[in-house]
Amino acid sequence: MIINFLFAAIKAGTPLLFGTTGEIMTQKTGNLNLGVEGMMFMGAFVGFFTGYKTGSITLALLAAFAVGVFAALIYAFLTVSLRANQNVTGLTLTIFGTGFAQFFGERMIAAAPDKSPKLPAELVAALSEKAIPLLGDIPYIGKLLFSHNIIVYLGVCIAFICGIYINRTKAGLNMRAVGENPAAADAAGINVTAVKYIHILAGGGICGIGGAYLSLINGGGVWNNSCVNGQGWIAVALVIFASWSPVKAILGSLIFGAFSVLQFYVPKDIIELPNAFYIALPFLITIIVLVFTSMKKSKEGAQPAGCGINYFREDR
């Protein structure tokens, strides 16, 4: 029972992990992108559509990544090159991405046989949960950690790679400096614009994969026009919960994944709460987390100081 619950929590937390990791990469370079929801929606549709047409998991994920990069490129061009307000641009991207996915999603539904686009069987099989040989046989742990679908492992790998990249490499150091104090980074000879573009784009791509997870895995192989449904927003809040560390984001997304599947594992005969409560729960927790994390005063593990502010070298 507990194992089943945690297993489901991991499954439900993975899209959050992608979204959170992507947003951490973006914020660490000094840009607050509120368009995570939109980028995930675009990734969800394009990933699903590619999988629907080609049946290839690789192509589906690549396409989702590419459309995330594309969406982030719009954001980066507006905020970095044209220095538009980051909050407004991000919100607009969310509205655009949601509309994009639902518009084309509707067309796809209309064109599909029995008005229900289903993924090809071979793709569903490739996406199914499979135990890793040997490791998957370990009692409890095997089921919990080594019997997931392939995208779960991809998400954890990306989070670890991003964590190492940020903290252990020179490029990561440069990126942190740009996010904290772009003027200092600039004076040190770092190309601020290039660093911002690279990481905003990478972050967008990662968010796109998170969206594809929602449509490919959570939808059970059938397209659903509201598959992202606020997960992008929770990811933005999780960034704060994870104190801008992709590795901590793994734990954070697991906890939030657990909240989102809690309703199926609480014995109904003992505690009876309305369904609406469980649906609202992750959002309620988000608010509580924000209240507590905002009370923290330390300079480290805080939002990059330059986050949300556009940089212009000759500004005085």
Partner: peptide, 8 residues
């Protein structure tokens, strides 16, 4: 105004 990154 020193061009230094505070948290580093």
């Amino acid at each position: 105004h020193f061009k230094l990154v505070d948290v580093l």
